[in-house]
Amino acid sequence: MTLYTTLADHDLVAFLKDGDKTAFTEIYNRYKGLLYIHAFNRLRNQQEADDVVHELFTTLWTKREDMFLKTHLSGYLYQAIRNRIIDVISHKKVESAYMVSLQHFIDKSEAVTDHLVRENELAALIEKEISALPPKMREVFELSRKANLSHREIAAKLDLSEMTVKKHVNNALKILRGKFGLLTVLLYISHH
């Protein structure tokens, strides 16, 4: 019987790659404390430090067969925990920026309301121009942009060739771009 606590890291990794749960447990017991201390020193939050350590070991187990060590196991684990810490810190920065942005949005709600009124007016103008398209072109365009059907699906539904569908969509976009400009049309399409 193998005494796992006496094995070197590279032996434990070999057993781990073969799916040996006892080797995994030994790696976990050997490194969890050090990795937690490192994570806690950087994050200053027990729950986040616990989470990154557990996430690391979960990934270590699920991706054990694909694991390739360029260095010692300790270096690999240290780098992996460092990357996870950086991800958490980056996520916090994004979250913080989002909260600042949200507060700014709330503070500027009157400007937003004015913007929405203009956006709705523009959408109504674009809808008016879409309804002025030739009937078949309009039908194809609306199926493409509003119903989100592929050219193939539209062709099958309307008994047309895919090339004809593509031509109708391109012509409709060309007409709308000519009237409103590319950016306006793209913004409108992305909202519908």
Rank of each mutant, 00 (worst) to 15 (best):
G75Y: 00
F68M: 11
L56G: 08
K63Y: 11
L69G: 03
F57R: 01
L122R: 15
L60K: 07
E121N: 14
L116W: 06
D51H: 05
I106F: 04
L69Q: 03
A123M: 10
L102P: 02
R138Y: 02
R64C: 05
A132M: 11
F105N: 04
N83M: 09
E48S: 12
Y98E: 12
K92H: 15
Q103P: 00
D50S: 06
E119D: 10
A132P: 05
L77C: 03
D87T: 08
H54V: 09
H72W: 01
L77T: 01
D114I: 07
Q46P: 07
T59R: 09
M99K: 13
V94T: 10
A123R: 15
H72R: 14
H104N: 14
R64W: 03
F57L: 03
D114S: 10
L69I: 02
H115A: 14
I85E: 03
A97I: 08
Y78V: 02
S131A: 05
D50F: 07
I106K: 11
Y76M: 05
A80G: 01
E119A: 11
D87G: 06
F105W: 04
I81R: 00
E129Y: 04
E65I: 08
H54N: 13
F57N: 00
P135K: 05
F105E: 02
E95C: 06
H91N: 14
D51I: 02
I130V: 15
R84I: 01
V88E: 08
D66E: 14
K136L: 15
L69A: 03
S101N: 12
V94D: 09
M99R: 13
F68N: 13
L125T: 07
A123T: 13
F57G: 03
D50H: 12
Q47D: 10
L56N: 07
V112A: 11
V94Q: 10
H91K: 15
W61M: 08
D114W: 01
R82L: 10
T113M: 11
L60C: 09
I106Q: 10
E127T: 04
H72V: 01
I89N: 04
L133Y: 00
R82G: 01
L69K: 00
I106M: 11
F68A: 13
T62G: 00
A123S: 15
V52L: 06
R118A: 05
E119C: 02
I89F: 02
F105M: 08
M99T: 09
K70V: 00
E127P: 01
T62W: 02
L73M: 12
A124E: 14
K93Y: 09
V52P: 06
E110V: 05
S74T: 09
N83D: 13
N83V: 02
F57A: 01
L133I: 07
L102T: 05
E48H: 08
I106N: 04
M67C: 04
L125Q: 15
E95F: 01
